[in-house]
Amino acid sequence: MSDLGIDLDYIMGRYNYWLFCILMMTGLYITVSRGNLIKKIVGLNIFQTAVFMLYISMGKVIGGTAPILTEVPETIYSNPLPHVLILTAIVVGIATTAVALALVVRIRESYGTIEEDEILELEHDMDFGSGAAQGDPVA
């Protein structure tokens, strides 16, 4: 393939990193572009999952097995540290999602919608609507 100027081995040999890039950009784009509060959280989760993939990829040692002690001394192990880090990051991600969903429930109860543009409209009415107290924290 060298005559085309494309190094296929380079591309295919790092496919998990390409997937990381694609997933990360997809997640970030969903978070930024969607107006639905739940979809934003979905985007955030995809974004975080991409990072998990990055860490797992860098812990991989070619020919290495899962890092569980075996009897054979010459076993090659994958690097367990990134796995452990990502376990922590997964827990953090779940906690974040839980808080975010709890907030969305409360927003739905107070505003009656989870669409960002409708919420912004309601907030605009609160600020500049008929006789509304402008910028008043005590509603």
């Binding site: 974004f47 975080q48 990072v51 907030l103 409360r106 107070s110 924290p137």
Partner: peptide, 23 residues
């Protein structure tokens, strides 16, 4: 939000941006 419900959307936006930052 016990005083003003806009605290909810403020917290939500902070959460989204804060999590992106941390990630």
């Amino acid at each position: 939000s016990w005083v003003n419900k806009r605290a909810l959307t403020a917290a939500y936006n902070y959460l989204i941006m804060g999590t992106v930052g941390a990630t």
